[in-house]
């Protein structure tokens, strides 16, 4: 019984959306355009510290709008939302674990020529054995 209810519930929620009309889409569209302009303007300022975070925050807001209203995630509840949120969470975790590694590795074990910013977490091991890594000097020919 529960299954039929799950499907029926979603169907009902989808139908309700019909009465709201296209105004919602126009508003979302306008908001997306405004955010695009904002992100371009702030992006051109080349904010040193927060540029990336700001840009990604704006992108996340835009993405949420698209997912919720254009893709009807606001109406598709239950498993649909779970699937979407899970996939985003796994992307975040994949990136996080890989970056933890790059950030806390023995410095010379990073590619030669790389200049990673210092990681907020100080790892005893990398500081302990000092030493510095130099890239082979690029020779500018021609």
């Amino acid at each position: 019984m529960s299954i039929a209810n799950e499907s029926l519930k979603e169907e009902r929620e989808m139908r309700e959306e019909r009465h709201t009309g296209p105004a919602k889409y126009v508003m979302v569209w306008a908001a997306l355009l405004v955010f695009t302009v904002v992100t371009v303007v702030t992006g051109r300022m080349h904010l040193p510290e927060w540029g990336l975070i700001l840009a990604l925050t704006i992108a996340t807001v835009k993405g949420t709008l698209v997912a919720l209203y254009f893709m009807h995630l606001a109406d598709h509840k239950g498993a649909n939302r779970l699937v979407f949120v899970t996939s985003i969470a796994f992307v975040a975790l994949l990136m996080a674990f890989s970056l933890f590694d790059l950030g806390t590795r023995f410095r010379p074990a990073l590619p030669s020529g790389s200049t990673p910013p210092t990681w907020p977490v100080e790892i005893e091991q990398s500081g302990r054995y000092g030493g510095k890594l130099m890239a082979p000097k690029p020779t500018m020919e021609q």
Binding site: G131, K132, L133, A135, P136, K137, P138, M140
Partner: peptide, 19 residues
Amino acid sequence: RTPDIRTGASRGPVYEPLS
């Protein structure tokens, strides 16, 4: 091959111990 990044072959980094 030049160590230049364009065509660079792997020459490896140069490690200078401090201690």
